[in-house]
Design a protein around this nucleic acid. Structure first.
Length: 493
RNA sequence: GGCGGCAUAGCCAAGUGGUAAGGCAACGGUCUGCAAAACCGUUAUUCUCCGGUUCGAAUCCGGAUGCCGCCUCCA
Protein backbone atom coordinates (compact mmCIF):
# COMPACT_ATOMS: atom_id res chain seq x y z
CA UNK A 1 0.00 0.00 0.00
CA UNK A 2 1.17 3.46 -0.70
CA UNK A 3 0.08 6.98 -0.02
CA UNK A 4 -2.22 8.51 -2.56
CA UNK A 5 -4.09 11.76 -2.51
CA UNK A 6 -6.08 14.14 -4.65
CA UNK A 7 -4.02 16.44 -6.82
CA UNK A 8 -5.86 19.62 -7.75
CA UNK A 9 -3.70 19.86 -10.84
CA UNK A 10 -4.96 16.61 -12.34
CA UNK A 11 -8.30 16.46 -10.53
CA UNK A 12 -7.77 12.91 -9.40
CA UNK A 13 -6.18 10.87 -6.69
CA UNK A 14 -2.61 9.95 -7.53
CA UNK A 15 0.03 7.76 -5.96
CA UNK A 16 2.49 10.00 -4.19
CA UNK A 17 6.03 9.65 -5.40
CA UNK A 18 8.36 12.34 -4.15
CA UNK A 19 11.18 13.51 -6.41
CA UNK A 20 13.77 12.19 -4.01
CA UNK A 21 12.63 8.96 -2.43
CA UNK A 22 12.28 9.48 1.27
CA UNK A 23 12.27 13.27 1.18
CA UNK A 24 9.40 15.68 0.68
CA UNK A 25 9.46 19.38 -0.07
CA UNK A 26 6.20 21.04 0.90
CA UNK A 27 5.14 24.67 0.65
CA UNK A 28 1.94 26.03 2.17
CA UNK A 29 0.71 29.59 1.82
CA UNK A 30 0.62 31.20 5.22
CA UNK A 31 -1.24 34.21 6.47
CA UNK A 32 -1.21 37.81 5.50
CA UNK A 33 -0.40 39.37 8.84
CA UNK A 34 -2.98 42.13 9.13
CA UNK A 35 -5.53 40.67 11.54
CA UNK A 36 -6.06 37.88 14.05
CA UNK A 37 -6.51 34.33 12.80
CA UNK A 38 -9.97 32.84 12.57
CA UNK A 39 -11.39 29.34 12.48
CA UNK A 40 -10.75 29.11 8.74
CA UNK A 41 -7.05 29.67 9.30
CA UNK A 42 -7.29 27.03 12.00
CA UNK A 43 -8.68 24.50 9.57
CA UNK A 44 -6.00 25.10 7.00
CA UNK A 45 -3.29 25.02 9.65
CA UNK A 46 -4.59 21.83 11.26
CA UNK A 47 -5.09 20.08 7.94
CA UNK A 48 -1.57 20.77 6.72
CA UNK A 49 -0.17 20.10 10.17
CA UNK A 50 -1.69 16.64 10.04
CA UNK A 51 -0.40 16.09 6.51
CA UNK A 52 3.04 17.15 7.70
CA UNK A 53 2.87 14.89 10.73
CA UNK A 54 1.58 11.98 8.70
CA UNK A 55 4.31 12.28 6.07
CA UNK A 56 6.84 12.18 8.87
CA UNK A 57 5.04 9.23 10.47
CA UNK A 58 5.34 7.44 7.13
CA UNK A 59 9.08 7.95 7.32
CA UNK A 60 9.58 10.87 4.98
CA UNK A 61 12.05 13.58 5.76
CA UNK A 62 9.86 16.62 5.25
CA UNK A 63 11.03 20.12 4.52
CA UNK A 64 7.94 22.17 5.27
CA UNK A 65 7.94 25.83 4.32
CA UNK A 66 5.12 28.17 5.31
CA UNK A 67 5.45 31.85 4.63
CA UNK A 68 4.24 35.05 6.22
CA UNK A 69 3.05 37.81 3.95
CA UNK A 70 4.24 40.91 5.76
CA UNK A 71 3.77 43.53 3.07
CA UNK A 72 0.52 44.02 1.16
CA UNK A 73 -2.36 46.44 0.68
CA UNK A 74 -4.28 45.35 3.74
CA UNK A 75 -1.28 45.61 6.01
CA UNK A 76 -0.45 49.02 4.62
CA UNK A 77 -4.02 50.18 5.14
CA UNK A 78 -4.12 48.90 8.67
CA UNK A 79 -0.78 50.48 9.51
CA UNK A 80 -1.85 53.81 8.04
CA UNK A 81 -5.11 53.83 9.97
CA UNK A 82 -3.29 53.27 13.23
CA UNK A 83 -0.32 55.50 12.53
CA UNK A 84 2.08 52.56 12.62
CA UNK A 85 4.61 51.23 10.15
CA UNK A 86 3.84 47.94 8.44
CA UNK A 87 6.30 45.96 10.52
CA UNK A 88 4.62 47.00 13.74
CA UNK A 89 1.41 45.58 12.32
CA UNK A 90 2.83 42.42 10.78
CA UNK A 91 5.06 41.61 13.76
CA UNK A 92 2.13 41.87 16.08
CA UNK A 93 -0.10 39.54 14.05
CA UNK A 94 2.68 37.07 13.31
CA UNK A 95 3.30 36.79 17.00
CA UNK A 96 -0.41 36.38 17.66
CA UNK A 97 -0.59 33.77 14.91
CA UNK A 98 2.26 31.82 16.47
CA UNK A 99 0.59 31.91 19.87
CA UNK A 100 -2.69 30.65 18.42
CA UNK A 101 -0.95 27.89 16.50
CA UNK A 102 1.05 26.79 19.52
CA UNK A 103 -2.10 26.54 21.55
CA UNK A 104 -3.77 24.56 18.78
CA UNK A 105 -0.86 22.15 18.84
CA UNK A 106 0.11 22.99 15.27
CA UNK A 107 3.74 22.11 14.87
CA UNK A 108 6.07 24.76 13.57
CA UNK A 109 7.10 24.34 9.94
CA UNK A 110 10.74 23.79 9.12
CA UNK A 111 11.11 27.28 7.70
CA UNK A 112 8.83 30.30 8.05
CA UNK A 113 10.18 32.98 5.73
CA UNK A 114 8.74 36.46 5.41
CA UNK A 115 8.08 38.21 2.14
CA UNK A 116 10.13 41.27 3.04
CA UNK A 117 13.19 39.11 3.68
CA UNK A 118 13.09 38.11 0.03
CA UNK A 119 12.82 41.36 -1.88
CA UNK A 120 16.13 40.84 -3.66
CA UNK A 121 15.05 37.43 -4.84
CA UNK A 122 11.79 38.88 -6.11
CA UNK A 123 13.60 41.58 -8.05
CA UNK A 124 15.84 38.95 -9.57
CA UNK A 125 12.89 36.77 -10.58
CA UNK A 126 10.97 39.71 -12.03
CA UNK A 127 14.05 40.73 -14.03
CA UNK A 128 14.27 37.22 -15.45
CA UNK A 129 10.61 37.34 -16.46
CA UNK A 130 11.17 40.70 -18.18
CA UNK A 131 14.23 39.37 -19.99
CA UNK A 132 12.36 36.33 -21.19
CA UNK A 133 9.44 38.41 -22.39
CA UNK A 134 6.83 37.15 -19.93
CA UNK A 135 6.46 40.51 -18.26
CA UNK A 136 6.35 44.19 -19.15
CA UNK A 137 6.80 47.36 -17.18
CA UNK A 138 4.57 50.40 -17.28
CA UNK A 139 5.26 53.57 -15.28
CA UNK A 140 7.14 51.78 -12.52
CA UNK A 141 4.77 48.83 -12.34
CA UNK A 142 5.63 45.44 -13.73
CA UNK A 143 2.94 43.06 -14.94
CA UNK A 144 3.01 39.42 -15.87
CA UNK A 145 1.51 38.79 -19.28
CA UNK A 146 -0.86 35.86 -18.93
CA UNK A 147 -1.14 35.45 -22.69
CA UNK A 148 2.58 34.77 -22.90
CA UNK A 149 2.20 31.67 -20.76
CA UNK A 150 0.35 28.98 -22.72
CA UNK A 151 -0.60 26.87 -19.70
CA UNK A 152 -2.27 29.73 -17.88
CA UNK A 153 -5.48 28.45 -16.30
CA UNK A 154 -4.49 24.80 -16.09
CA UNK A 155 -4.63 24.52 -12.31
CA UNK A 156 -7.98 26.22 -11.93
CA UNK A 157 -9.44 24.59 -15.03
CA UNK A 158 -10.31 27.71 -16.89
CA UNK A 159 -9.39 29.32 -20.15
CA UNK A 160 -8.60 32.96 -20.65
CA UNK A 161 -11.31 33.26 -23.31
CA UNK A 162 -13.96 31.95 -20.91
CA UNK A 163 -12.89 34.23 -18.15
CA UNK A 164 -12.90 37.32 -20.29
CA UNK A 165 -16.49 36.57 -21.16
CA UNK A 166 -17.33 36.95 -17.48
CA UNK A 167 -15.71 40.37 -17.44
CA UNK A 168 -15.85 40.93 -13.74
CA UNK A 169 -12.39 42.37 -13.52
CA UNK A 170 -11.62 46.03 -13.59
CA UNK A 171 -10.26 47.20 -16.86
CA UNK A 172 -6.90 48.79 -16.43
CA UNK A 173 -5.80 50.52 -19.62
CA UNK A 174 -2.19 49.87 -18.85
CA UNK A 175 -2.61 46.12 -18.84
CA UNK A 176 -2.43 44.15 -22.05
CA UNK A 177 -4.93 41.65 -20.72
CA UNK A 178 -7.31 42.21 -17.80
CA UNK A 179 -5.91 39.11 -16.11
CA UNK A 180 -2.32 40.32 -16.21
CA UNK A 181 -1.23 40.71 -12.61
CA UNK A 182 1.27 42.90 -10.83
CA UNK A 183 4.71 41.54 -10.08
CA UNK A 184 5.90 44.89 -8.82
CA UNK A 185 3.94 47.98 -7.86
CA UNK A 186 5.32 51.49 -7.70
CA UNK A 187 4.86 52.89 -4.22
CA UNK A 188 2.64 55.84 -3.64
CA UNK A 189 3.47 58.58 -1.16
CA UNK A 190 3.58 57.19 2.36
CA UNK A 191 3.73 53.56 1.30
CA UNK A 192 6.68 51.35 2.10
CA UNK A 193 9.16 50.97 -0.72
CA UNK A 194 12.27 49.20 -1.87
CA UNK A 195 14.62 50.32 -4.64
CA UNK A 196 14.32 48.39 -7.86
CA UNK A 197 15.30 48.74 -11.52
CA UNK A 198 11.76 50.08 -12.07
CA UNK A 199 11.96 52.68 -9.35
CA UNK A 200 10.84 52.66 -5.75
CA UNK A 201 8.13 50.12 -5.23
CA UNK A 202 6.89 47.03 -3.49
CA UNK A 203 6.19 43.48 -4.59
CA UNK A 204 2.91 42.16 -5.92
CA UNK A 205 1.25 39.49 -3.85
CA UNK A 206 2.01 36.34 -5.82
CA UNK A 207 5.71 36.75 -6.50
CA UNK A 208 6.79 36.12 -2.93
CA UNK A 209 5.65 32.51 -2.91
CA UNK A 210 7.47 31.74 -6.15
CA UNK A 211 10.65 33.19 -4.71
CA UNK A 212 10.46 31.64 -1.28
CA UNK A 213 9.53 28.18 -2.49
CA UNK A 214 12.38 28.28 -4.98
CA UNK A 215 14.80 29.50 -2.35
CA UNK A 216 14.03 26.81 0.19
CA UNK A 217 12.75 23.92 -1.92
CA UNK A 218 14.19 24.41 -5.40
CA UNK A 219 12.64 25.06 -8.81
CA UNK A 220 10.56 21.91 -8.68
CA UNK A 221 9.21 20.55 -5.42
CA UNK A 222 6.65 18.02 -4.28
CA UNK A 223 3.63 19.51 -2.57
CA UNK A 224 2.08 22.94 -2.61
CA UNK A 225 -0.92 23.60 -0.44
CA UNK A 226 -3.35 26.20 0.77
CA UNK A 227 -7.02 27.05 1.07
CA UNK A 228 -9.17 26.33 -1.95
CA UNK A 229 -9.74 30.03 -2.52
CA UNK A 230 -6.09 30.37 -3.42
CA UNK A 231 -6.39 28.15 -6.48
CA UNK A 232 -7.33 31.17 -8.51
CA UNK A 233 -5.69 33.51 -8.96
CA UNK A 234 -2.89 33.09 -6.44
CA UNK A 235 -1.65 29.59 -7.22
CA UNK A 236 -2.35 29.92 -10.90
CA UNK A 237 -0.14 32.99 -10.94
CA UNK A 238 2.58 31.33 -8.92
CA UNK A 239 2.77 28.55 -11.47
CA UNK A 240 2.89 31.01 -14.36
CA UNK A 241 5.68 33.08 -12.83
CA UNK A 242 7.78 30.20 -11.66
CA UNK A 243 7.51 28.00 -14.71
CA UNK A 244 7.98 30.92 -17.09
CA UNK A 245 11.14 31.92 -15.26
CA UNK A 246 12.72 28.51 -14.73
CA UNK A 247 11.33 26.58 -17.65
CA UNK A 248 10.78 23.71 -15.24
CA UNK A 249 7.68 22.28 -13.61
CA UNK A 250 6.76 24.03 -10.36
CA UNK A 251 4.88 22.06 -7.68
CA UNK A 252 4.11 18.45 -8.59
CA UNK A 253 1.12 17.91 -6.31
CA UNK A 254 -1.38 20.54 -5.23
CA UNK A 255 -3.48 20.12 -2.11
CA UNK A 256 -6.31 22.48 -1.19
CA UNK A 257 -8.45 22.42 1.90
CA UNK A 258 -12.15 23.24 1.85
CA UNK A 259 -13.74 26.21 3.55
CA UNK A 260 -15.52 26.53 6.82
CA UNK A 261 -19.02 27.88 6.90
CA UNK A 262 -20.63 29.38 9.96
CA UNK A 263 -24.24 28.42 10.56
CA UNK A 264 -24.32 27.41 6.93
CA UNK A 265 -23.23 30.77 5.65
CA UNK A 266 -19.92 31.74 4.21
CA UNK A 267 -17.71 33.20 6.87
CA UNK A 268 -16.76 36.71 5.95
CA UNK A 269 -16.00 39.98 7.59
CA UNK A 270 -18.93 41.65 5.89
CA UNK A 271 -21.39 39.15 7.37
CA UNK A 272 -19.77 39.68 10.74
CA UNK A 273 -19.64 35.96 11.47
CA UNK A 274 -15.89 35.57 11.67
CA UNK A 275 -14.87 33.61 14.71
CA UNK A 276 -11.31 34.02 15.92
CA UNK A 277 -9.21 31.14 17.17
CA UNK A 278 -8.76 32.92 20.45
CA UNK A 279 -12.50 33.14 21.02
CA UNK A 280 -12.95 29.43 20.41
CA UNK A 281 -10.10 28.47 22.67
CA UNK A 282 -11.66 30.41 25.50
CA UNK A 283 -14.61 28.05 25.31
CA UNK A 284 -13.14 24.75 24.19
CA UNK A 285 -10.03 22.63 24.56
CA UNK A 286 -7.84 23.08 21.47
CA UNK A 287 -8.20 19.40 20.65
CA UNK A 288 -11.98 19.86 20.45
CA UNK A 289 -11.42 22.19 17.52
CA UNK A 290 -8.92 19.77 15.99
CA UNK A 291 -11.31 16.84 16.38
CA UNK A 292 -14.13 18.88 14.86
CA UNK A 293 -11.93 19.70 11.87
CA UNK A 294 -10.57 16.19 11.42
CA UNK A 295 -13.93 14.45 11.61
CA UNK A 296 -14.63 15.67 8.09
CA UNK A 297 -12.55 15.13 5.01
CA UNK A 298 -10.19 18.04 4.41
CA UNK A 299 -11.63 18.90 1.00
CA UNK A 300 -15.29 19.11 1.99
CA UNK A 301 -17.03 22.12 3.43
CA UNK A 302 -17.65 22.00 7.10
CA UNK A 303 -20.29 23.89 8.97
CA UNK A 304 -19.05 25.47 12.14
CA UNK A 305 -21.73 25.72 14.82
CA UNK A 306 -21.91 25.66 18.58
CA UNK A 307 -23.62 22.27 18.35
CA UNK A 308 -20.92 20.73 16.22
CA UNK A 309 -18.28 21.84 18.69
CA UNK A 310 -20.29 20.41 21.56
CA UNK A 311 -20.47 17.10 19.72
CA UNK A 312 -16.74 17.15 19.13
CA UNK A 313 -16.24 17.85 22.81
CA UNK A 314 -18.36 14.82 23.70
CA UNK A 315 -16.30 12.70 21.34
CA UNK A 316 -13.01 13.92 22.73
CA UNK A 317 -14.28 13.20 26.22
CA UNK A 318 -14.78 9.60 25.18
CA UNK A 319 -11.12 9.39 24.24
CA UNK A 320 -9.90 11.00 27.43
CA UNK A 321 -12.25 8.91 29.56
CA UNK A 322 -10.66 5.72 28.32
CA UNK A 323 -7.19 7.20 28.79
CA UNK A 324 -8.16 8.11 32.33
CA UNK A 325 -9.43 4.60 32.93
CA UNK A 326 -6.17 3.10 31.76
CA UNK A 327 -4.12 5.57 33.74
CA UNK A 328 -5.99 4.73 36.93
CA UNK A 329 -5.77 1.00 36.31
CA UNK A 330 -2.03 1.26 35.78
CA UNK A 331 -1.47 3.34 38.88
CA UNK A 332 -1.24 0.17 40.96
CA UNK A 333 2.23 -1.15 41.50
CA UNK A 334 2.32 -4.29 39.43
CA UNK A 335 5.31 -5.67 37.60
CA UNK A 336 4.55 -6.39 33.95
CA UNK A 337 8.15 -6.79 32.87
CA UNK A 338 7.99 -10.56 32.47
CA UNK A 339 5.02 -10.52 30.14
CA UNK A 340 5.60 -11.31 26.51
CA UNK A 341 2.88 -10.67 23.95
CA UNK A 342 3.15 -14.20 22.59
CA UNK A 343 2.41 -15.64 26.01
CA UNK A 344 -0.91 -13.87 26.34
CA UNK A 345 -3.96 -16.07 26.20
CA UNK A 346 -7.72 -15.91 26.17
CA UNK A 347 -9.30 -12.48 26.24
CA UNK A 348 -5.98 -10.74 26.90
CA UNK A 349 -4.59 -12.25 23.75
CA UNK A 350 -7.70 -11.45 21.72
CA UNK A 351 -7.77 -7.80 22.75
CA UNK A 352 -4.04 -7.40 22.29
CA UNK A 353 -4.27 -8.80 18.77
CA UNK A 354 -7.06 -6.40 17.87
CA UNK A 355 -5.14 -3.44 19.24
CA UNK A 356 -2.17 -4.53 17.17
CA UNK A 357 -4.18 -4.22 13.95
CA UNK A 358 -5.06 -0.60 14.63
CA UNK A 359 -1.95 1.07 13.18
CA UNK A 360 -2.44 -0.83 9.94
CA UNK A 361 -6.06 0.25 9.63
CA UNK A 362 -5.10 3.78 10.54
CA UNK A 363 -2.44 3.87 7.83
CA UNK A 364 -4.85 2.42 5.27
CA UNK A 365 -7.25 5.26 5.99
CA UNK A 366 -4.66 8.00 5.99
CA UNK A 367 -2.97 6.66 2.89
CA UNK A 368 -6.24 7.19 1.06
CA UNK A 369 -6.23 10.95 0.61
CA UNK A 370 -5.54 11.68 4.28
CA UNK A 371 -8.90 10.30 5.33
CA UNK A 372 -8.80 11.50 8.91
CA UNK A 373 -12.52 10.84 9.41
CA UNK A 374 -12.05 7.16 8.70
CA UNK A 375 -8.85 7.07 10.74
CA UNK A 376 -10.75 8.51 13.69
CA UNK A 377 -13.37 5.83 13.23
CA UNK A 378 -10.60 3.25 13.72
CA UNK A 379 -9.48 4.98 16.91
CA UNK A 380 -13.04 5.03 18.24
CA UNK A 381 -13.32 1.33 17.49
CA UNK A 382 -10.37 0.72 19.78
CA UNK A 383 -11.90 2.90 22.46
CA UNK A 384 -14.98 0.70 22.41
CA UNK A 385 -12.79 -2.40 22.40
CA UNK A 386 -10.89 -1.28 25.48
CA UNK A 387 -14.01 -0.15 27.31
CA UNK A 388 -15.53 -3.55 26.63
CA UNK A 389 -12.38 -5.17 27.94
CA UNK A 390 -12.63 -3.09 31.09
CA UNK A 391 -16.22 -4.19 31.52
CA UNK A 392 -15.16 -7.83 31.22
CA UNK A 393 -12.30 -7.39 33.65
CA UNK A 394 -14.56 -5.80 36.27
CA UNK A 395 -11.92 -4.49 38.61
CA UNK A 396 -9.76 -7.60 38.53
CA UNK A 397 -6.73 -6.44 36.58
CA UNK A 398 -4.07 -9.08 36.19
CA UNK A 399 -0.51 -8.15 35.19
CA UNK A 400 -1.42 -9.49 31.74
CA UNK A 401 -4.44 -7.23 31.41
CA UNK A 402 -2.45 -4.24 32.60
CA UNK A 403 0.09 -5.03 29.95
CA UNK A 404 -2.64 -5.10 27.31
CA UNK A 405 -4.10 -1.83 28.57
CA UNK A 406 -0.69 -0.20 28.46
CA UNK A 407 -0.28 -1.39 24.89
CA UNK A 408 -3.69 0.04 24.02
CA UNK A 409 -2.79 3.36 25.52
CA UNK A 410 0.51 3.65 23.74
CA UNK A 411 -1.08 2.77 20.41
CA UNK A 412 -3.82 5.34 20.90
CA UNK A 413 -1.31 7.96 21.92
CA UNK A 414 1.01 7.20 19.05
CA UNK A 415 -1.73 7.49 16.44
CA UNK A 416 -3.36 10.37 18.28
CA UNK A 417 -0.09 12.19 17.97
CA UNK A 418 -0.26 11.99 14.19
CA UNK A 419 -3.58 13.84 14.40
CA UNK A 420 -2.36 16.13 17.16
CA UNK A 421 -4.82 14.61 19.64
CA UNK A 422 -4.59 13.01 23.09
CA UNK A 423 -1.50 14.98 24.02
CA UNK A 424 -2.83 15.94 27.45
CA UNK A 425 -2.72 14.01 30.66
CA UNK A 426 -6.31 12.80 31.16
CA UNK A 427 -6.60 14.23 34.68
CA UNK A 428 -5.39 17.59 33.45
CA UNK A 429 -7.82 17.38 30.58
CA UNK A 430 -10.85 16.87 32.81
CA UNK A 431 -9.76 19.51 35.29
CA UNK A 432 -9.25 22.06 32.54
CA UNK A 433 -12.51 21.10 30.88
CA UNK A 434 -14.44 21.59 34.09
CA UNK A 435 -12.78 24.89 34.85
CA UNK A 436 -13.55 26.11 31.36
CA UNK A 437 -17.20 25.14 31.63
CA UNK A 438 -17.52 26.65 35.11
CA UNK A 439 -16.25 29.94 33.75
CA UNK A 440 -18.39 29.75 30.63
CA UNK A 441 -21.58 29.18 32.59
CA UNK A 442 -20.72 31.33 35.56
CA UNK A 443 -21.09 28.51 38.06
CA UNK A 444 -20.31 28.93 41.73
CA UNK A 445 -17.85 26.19 42.64
CA UNK A 446 -18.06 26.72 46.39
CA UNK A 447 -21.86 26.43 46.30
CA UNK A 448 -21.68 23.28 44.20
CA UNK A 449 -19.18 21.65 46.50
CA UNK A 450 -21.10 22.52 49.60
CA UNK A 451 -24.23 20.95 48.08
CA UNK A 452 -22.22 17.87 47.23
CA UNK A 453 -20.97 17.71 50.82
CA UNK A 454 -24.53 18.00 52.07
CA UNK A 455 -25.60 15.26 49.70
CA UNK A 456 -22.79 12.99 50.86
CA UNK A 457 -23.95 13.50 54.40
CA UNK A 458 -27.51 12.67 53.39
CA UNK A 459 -26.29 9.58 51.60
CA UNK A 460 -24.44 8.23 54.61
CA UNK A 461 -27.72 8.58 56.47
CA UNK A 462 -29.46 6.89 53.54
CA UNK A 463 -31.60 9.97 53.08
CA UNK A 464 -32.08 9.21 49.40
CA UNK A 465 -34.82 11.78 48.96
CA UNK A 466 -32.58 14.67 49.92
CA UNK A 467 -29.64 13.20 47.99
CA UNK A 468 -31.68 12.95 44.81
CA UNK A 469 -33.11 16.40 45.28
CA UNK A 470 -29.59 17.83 45.35
CA UNK A 471 -28.57 15.77 42.36
CA UNK A 472 -31.53 17.10 40.46
CA UNK A 473 -30.95 20.71 41.35
CA UNK A 474 -27.31 20.46 40.33
CA UNK A 475 -28.28 18.75 37.09
CA UNK A 476 -30.44 21.74 36.26
CA UNK A 477 -27.28 23.83 36.34
CA UNK A 478 -25.50 21.33 34.11
CA UNK A 479 -23.57 19.72 36.93
CA UNK A 480 -23.29 15.95 36.63
CA UNK A 481 -22.40 13.89 39.67
CA UNK A 482 -20.52 10.65 39.68
CA UNK A 483 -20.53 8.59 42.83
CA UNK A 484 -17.67 6.29 43.55
CA UNK A 485 -17.31 4.11 46.65
CA UNK A 486 -15.07 6.71 48.27
CA UNK A 487 -16.11 10.09 46.91
CA UNK A 488 -18.41 12.03 44.63
CA UNK A 489 -16.86 13.63 41.55
CA UNK A 490 -18.56 16.21 39.44
CA UNK A 491 -18.29 17.53 35.92
CA UNK A 492 -20.19 19.92 33.70
CA UNK A 493 -22.36 18.58 30.89
C1' G B 1 -22.33 34.59 -18.69
C1' G B 2 -18.10 30.91 -17.74
C1' C B 3 -16.03 26.97 -14.48
C1' G B 4 -16.59 23.60 -10.45
C1' G B 5 -18.53 21.02 -6.10
C1' C B 6 -22.12 18.68 -3.05
C1' A B 7 -26.91 15.75 -1.94
C1' U B 8 -25.95 9.05 2.82
C1' A B 9 -30.48 7.94 9.51
C1' G B 10 -32.95 13.10 14.16
C1' C B 11 -27.92 15.76 13.50
C1' C B 12 -22.53 15.32 11.97
C1' A B 13 -19.94 12.00 8.78
C1' A B 14 -16.94 7.75 6.14
C1' G B 15 -17.81 4.77 2.15
C1' U B 16 -15.94 5.51 -5.86
C1' G B 17 -18.80 -1.69 -8.54
C1' G B 18 -19.91 -6.76 -4.19
C1' U B 19 -24.49 -5.83 -0.46
C1' A B 20 -24.31 0.91 4.42
C1' A B 21 -17.56 2.74 9.33
C1' G B 22 -17.52 6.07 13.22
C1' G B 23 -19.25 10.29 16.40
C1' C B 24 -23.41 12.96 18.68
C1' A B 25 -28.55 12.37 20.10
C1' A B 26 -32.71 9.06 21.42
C1' C B 27 -34.89 4.55 23.32
C1' G B 28 -34.58 -0.49 25.76
C1' G B 29 -31.32 -3.73 28.78
C1' U B 30 -26.93 -4.71 32.26
C1' C B 31 -24.44 -2.15 36.29
C1' U B 32 -25.92 1.51 40.34
C1' G B 33 -29.72 3.08 46.61
C1' C B 34 -30.92 6.53 42.36
C1' A B 35 -27.60 8.41 38.88
C1' A B 36 -23.12 9.23 35.80
C1' A B 37 -19.62 6.57 32.90
C1' A B 38 -19.15 2.02 30.42
C1' C B 39 -20.95 -2.26 27.87
C1' C B 40 -24.94 -4.89 25.01
C1' G B 41 -29.15 -4.05 21.85
C1' U B 42 -32.50 -0.90 18.80
C1' U B 43 -32.69 3.56 15.34
C1' A B 44 -31.07 4.11 6.76
C1' U B 45 -33.90 -3.25 3.32
C1' U B 46 -31.42 1.86 1.84
C1' C B 47 -27.96 6.35 0.09
C1' U B 48 -32.56 13.63 -3.38
C1' C B 49 -35.63 11.99 -7.71
C1' C B 50 -36.19 9.57 -12.73
C1' G B 51 -34.02 6.58 -16.38
C1' G B 52 -29.69 3.56 -18.22
C1' U B 53 -25.14 0.16 -18.01
C1' U B 54 -24.10 -4.40 -15.05
C1' C B 55 -24.95 -10.94 -12.48
C1' G B 56 -24.59 -6.90 -9.01
C1' A B 57 -24.58 0.53 -8.15
C1' A B 58 -24.75 4.95 -2.60
C1' U B 59 -20.68 4.09 -5.89
C1' C B 60 -20.42 4.26 -13.35
C1' C B 61 -23.48 6.96 -17.43
C1' G B 62 -27.70 10.37 -18.94
C1' G B 63 -31.48 13.62 -17.20
C1' A B 64 -34.28 16.42 -13.32
C1' U B 65 -34.49 19.00 -8.63
C1' G B 66 -32.17 21.36 -4.57
C1' C B 67 -27.99 23.59 -2.01
C1' C B 68 -23.15 25.76 -2.38
C1' G B 69 -18.41 27.66 -4.15
C1' C B 70 -15.03 30.16 -7.58
C1' C B 71 -14.44 33.77 -11.62
C1' U B 72 -12.85 40.40 -6.85
C1' C B 73 -9.30 40.60 -1.08
C1' C B 74 -10.13 35.98 1.40
C1' A B 75 -7.61 29.83 4.71
Amino acid sequence: MSLRFYNTLTRQKEDFMPRDPGAVGMYVCGITAYDVCHVGHARSAVVFDVIYRYLKYRGYNVNFVKNFTDVDDKIIARAASQGLDIFQVSDRFIKKHNDDMDRLGVSRPTVTPKATENIKGMIRLISTLLEKGFAYSVEGDVYFSVESFPNYGRLSGRRLEDMEAGARVEIDERKRNPYDFALWKSSKEGEPWWDSPWGRGRPGWHIECSVMSQRYLGDTFDIHGGGEDLIFPHHENEIAQSEAATGKPFARYWIHNGFIKVDNEKMSKSLGNVCSIEEILEKYHPEVLRLFILQSHYRSYIDFTETSLQEARAGLERFYAVMKGIKDALSVDVDCSQIMPRNLSGLDHEIYEKIETLPERFVDSMDDDFNTARALGCLFDVVRLINGYFAELKSACSPESLFVLAAGRSTLKELGKVLGLLADDPDDYFIADRNREVLKRGLDVAAIESLIAERSEARTQKNWGRADEIRKSLAERGVILKDSPTETLWSVA
